[in-house]
Nucleic acid binder design. Structure first.
Length: 828
RNA sequence: GCCCGGGUGGCGGAACUGGUAGACGCAGGGGACUUAAAAUCCCCUGGGGUCAAUCCCCGUGCGGGUUCGAGUCCCGCCCCGGGCACCA
């Protein structure tokens, strides 16, 4: 018997697939399209198990949809700008471009060895000028629309990566990439105005409900952080200045007893100007400013403040309100100033206690009476307004509206919305990224590079010393002519955040070679949106939010009509070994290449799909993969054993002429088709689909002896079973499937075959097991014909031998009959 | 603190809208084949009732509840993972 030799088989089919251009697609208006996309990798050097899992899941989806008759776009490429390449240059003296290219070549080989159904003709690499020139063009268009802009602002700086970071890229006060503590610097930087889309991005989440994982939606919702309230202006006494505050509690304005502003707030200088101890106060404020942001963001961090010496006027009460500078007030959020109502805000309460400021109750909860002297914490709940002028007696929710209306009439305040989301800081002080296409002219200021001069390419000869941005040191690069006036100008040396490339690559896959724009509209109109996107949860906010934003920008620039780039999202779990994420430092890394060498790609893929449902973390198990290998071998042997008998038995069998065993076989086969199809289609539960095939194989060994394999009809039935099996397995273990397909004497590839359909007649059961319970406990099981009427079921149950002893001498209170399932006899 | 997940045998995991808990795989045990081993094939395997059973009891993190019936629904807790967090 021919043994199962995955190495040989897999290489053979990979060659055949490539030669026949099996995976190459183009637009076809006759067919429904399906865009299946997995997050493309950063070419770090080697594929790891997480990639293999991600791409195996995607490949099942792509191949399955293809067999279901869809025109499937399934591309792959490289997110190839990024720091590791540059760090390799600094450390080993190899140019980032070379390092990247070599990694891509190696990893591409690895992916090919796994047999994924990618259309490699569409491969893109984001570090190529052919790619990033379009990003530069879009940047300029964004600049013209005011969606890209430069401003001086306090920004996150990573000392180890030597560059600034966007907010989303700071995880718990640390750099997302290297874990270094982030410091705040005041720098002039480029931003994308993502906040202009805050409301739309939030609204859009609603449409994704049910198609994206709940937790991703919540994370984005939290990140955008919308809060509704009001903005109020307070006149500063003795100054011709106003302080604006944002509050979610306009209903508490009568309880304001002081005001807090951020140390960074520009008005601070004016507020303290006339303070008798100006120098001392100034120093104190400087001290607060210098407190590290990561510490200041901690809730446990001590709340500190200092009186500025100035007062403002509460427009509702005309009371004088002292103004403090406080370390807990964030300049970046809201208006950088807060009205303090200690009776109804815990943080203000603590501050008031510390500095002995008055506490004024303006909301009384129902049935209780708050007394400022006795309060141990702020009351932040609902209630009735007291001491609140004309608003006294109102329910606080009602009062919010009334007070906003009043302010709007009087003109010192209005209803307002605030977001936690901040603009996306996209400039990076690094070499290996897309250059930001502007020049600085002493006469004309910031001038965009004209489209005809794009792309602005990276100079090859930059020095990688590890100090500063290499681009600054390349004179030919920095030296430029102003496109407007022709005078000598300085080129921008910042490059773009690499998340910009990954924010639109899915569009580029639709027309990867297009040289007249980022992508061809008709092609993108055909393929987009991505029907199924698959990747890690770590991009819940970062990449997935940026892409949603960028798609809307492209829409507003006229490139597409689409709002949302990804229709459905699947976030797969991590691959774990011994309870921890695989990592070099823990020494628990399993290398895909080793596994492929030992078992073949099909087994590796099968195990990753079988060991857990896709969204859950997966425990790598050496015995587990062994089991999958055994399964394939076992199946292989069974088929090989009968291949000569069934090979020629082509054509339909006559059901009536089948042996009982063969009838059973056909029935089971159709049930399997039904099960596997449902598991893939409805829930992507590949693990249970594979389990069903394993079960089916166990059945094959069982039914084997009951088949009459000298009968032509039985042979046909078995052959049919093998064919169906090959097709059902094709998305999971494509090489194996094609090998069997061929061994059965068929032409072509399983991928080109239509997905098998179950025949409802064969799936119908004649008999079924009904459980008989007494008081909810299973006491007996009976075999009965399907759809037996309730009355009959009831009688059979009541007369069942095993049931008698449970109901003898008892009162039958009632009998519940669920046809085909259960009879429950309630006795007392 | 708030918001999402999740908690089922020795392990990974099944159980669709409440209706046979533990599919499938791993690990373990027994048997067949073999001079022997590996491989393979067959059987057993949640805990307990001193053997067995087509017998009985218990059992899906804990405590209550709804229901003829709860892993599944409701209320209150505990634990694990993740996100947000001085956001005004």
């Amino acid at each position: 018997m021919k043994p199962y030799t995955p190495q040989e088989i897999e290489e053979k089919w990979q060659e055949k697939w490539e030669k026949s251009r099996l995976f190459n697609v183009k637009e076809d208006p006759q067919k429904p399209k399906y865009y299946c996309l997995e997050m493309f990798p950063y070419p770090s050097g080697r594929i790891h198990m997480g990639h293999v899992r991600n791409y195996s899941i995607g490949d099942v989806v792509a191949r399955y949809k293809r067999m279901r008759g869809f025109n499937v776009l399934h591309p792959m490429g490289w997110d190839s700008f990024g720091l590791p390449a540059e760090n390799a240059a600094i450390k080993h003296g190899v140019h980032p471009a070379k390092w990247t290219e070599e990694n891509i070549a190696f990893m591409k080989k690895q992916l090919k060895r796994l047999g994924f159904s990618y259309d490699w003709d569409r491969e893109i690499s984001t570090c190529e000028p052919e790619y990033y020139r379009w990003e530069q063009k879009i940047f300029i268009e964004m600049l013209e629309k005011g969606l890209a802009y430069k401003k001086k602002a306090p920004v996150n700086w990573c000392e180890r990566c030597h560059t600034v970071l966007a907010n989303e890229q700071v995880i718990g006060g640390k750099c997302w990439r290297c874990g270094e503590e982030v410091v705040i610097k005041d720098l002039e930087q480029w931003f994308f105005r993502i906040t202009a889309y805050a409301e739309e991005l939030l609204e859009g989440l609603k449409k994704l409900k049910g198609k994206w994982p709940e937790r991703v939606l919540t994370m984005q919702e939290n990140w955008i952080g919308k809060s509704e309230g009001a903005e109020i202006e307070f006149e500063v006494e003795g100054l011709n200045e106003k302080i604006r505050v944002f509050t979610t509690r306009p209903d508490t304005v009568y309880g304001i007893t002081f005001m807090s502003v951020a140390p960074e707030h520009p008005i601070v200088e004016k507020l303290i100007k006339n303070h008798p101890e100006y120098e001392k106060v100034k120093q104190e404020i400087e001290r607060l400013k210098k407190q590290p942001k990561s510490a200041r963001l901690m809730e446990s961090f001590e709340k500190e403040g200092i009186f500025t010496g100035s007062y403002c006027i509460n427009p509702f009460t005309q009371e004088r309100v002292p103004i403090f500078v406080a370390n807990f007030v964030l300049y970046e959020y809201g208006t950088g100033a807060v009205m303090a109502v200690p009776a109804h805000d815990q943080r203000d309460f603590e501050f008031a206690k510390k500095y002995n400021l008055p506490i004024k109750v303006v909301i009384q909860p129902e049935g209780k009476s708050l007394n400022p002297e006795e309060m141990e914490e702020a009351y932040e709940g609902e209630g009735i307004l007291v001491n609140s002028g004309p608003f006294t007696g109102m329910k606080n929710e009602e009062a919010k509206k009334a007070i906003i209306k009043y302010m709007e009439e009087k003109g010192f305040g209005k209803g307002a919305v605030s977001y936690r989301l901040k603009d996306w800081l996209i400039s990076r002080q690094r070499y290996w990224g897309a250059p930001i296409p502007v020049v600085y002219c002493p006469e004309c200021g910031i001038v965009p590079v004209p489209e005809s001069e794009l792309p602005v390419t990276l100079p090859k000869n930059a020095p990688f010393s590890g100090v500063g941005n290499p681009l600054e040191q390349v004179e030919e690069f920095v030296k430029a002519r102003c496109p407007k006036c022709g005078k000598e100008a300085k080129r921008e040396t910042d490059t773009m955040d690499t998340f910009v490339e990954s924010s639109w690559y899915f569009f580029r896959f639709c027309s990867p070679k297009y040289d007249k724009g980022p992508f061809k509209k008709e092609e993108a109109d055909y393929w987009m949106p991505v029907d199924q996107y698959i990747g890690g949860i770590e991009h819940a906010v970062l990449h997935l939010l940026y892409s949603r934003f960028y798609t809307r920008v492209l829409r507003d620039l006229g490139y597409t009509e689409l709002d949302e780039p990804f229709d459905a999202l699947l976030t797969q779990g991590m691959v774990i070994k011994d309870g921890a994420k695989m990592s070099k430092s823990l020494g628990n890394v399993v290398d895909p290449d080793d596994m492929i060498e030992k078992y073949g790609a099909d087994t590796v893929r099968l195990f990753l799909l079988f060991a857990a449902p896709p969204e859950r973390d997966l425990d790598w198990s050496d015995q587990g993969i062994d089991g999958c290998f055994r399964f394939l071998n076992r199946l292989w042997r069974f088929i090989q054993k009968h291949i000569d008998e069934v090979k020629e038995a082509k054509g339909d069998f006559e059901p009536d002429k089948l042996s009982d065993g063969a009838k059973e076989l056909v029935k089971k086969t159709h049930k399997l088709i039904q099960k596997v199809t449902a598991d893939i289609e409805d829930r992507f539960h590949f693990n249970t689909a594979i389990a069903a095939v394993m079960e089916y194989l166990n059945f094959l060994y069982d039914v084997e002896s009951r088949l009459e394999l000298n009968s032509e009809e039985d042979k046909k039935a078995l052959r049919d079973a093998f064919e169906k099996l090959a097709l059902l397995l094709s998305p999971f273990v494509p090489h194996f499937a094609d090998e069997i397909w061929e061994a059965l004497g068929n032409e072509g590839f399983t991928l080109e075959q239509p997905w098998p359909q179950h025949n409802p007649e064969w799936v119908k059961e004649k008999e079924t097991t009904v459980v008989i319970q007494v008081n909810g406990k299973v006491r007996s099981r009976i075999q009965v014909p399907v759809n037996l009427p309730e009355e009959e079921l009831k009688n059979i149950a009541l007369n069942d031998e095993r049931i008698k002893k449970w109901i003898e001498g008892k009162n039958i209170v009632k009998v519940i009959v669920v046809p085909n399932k259960i009879v429950n006899i309630v006795v007392r």
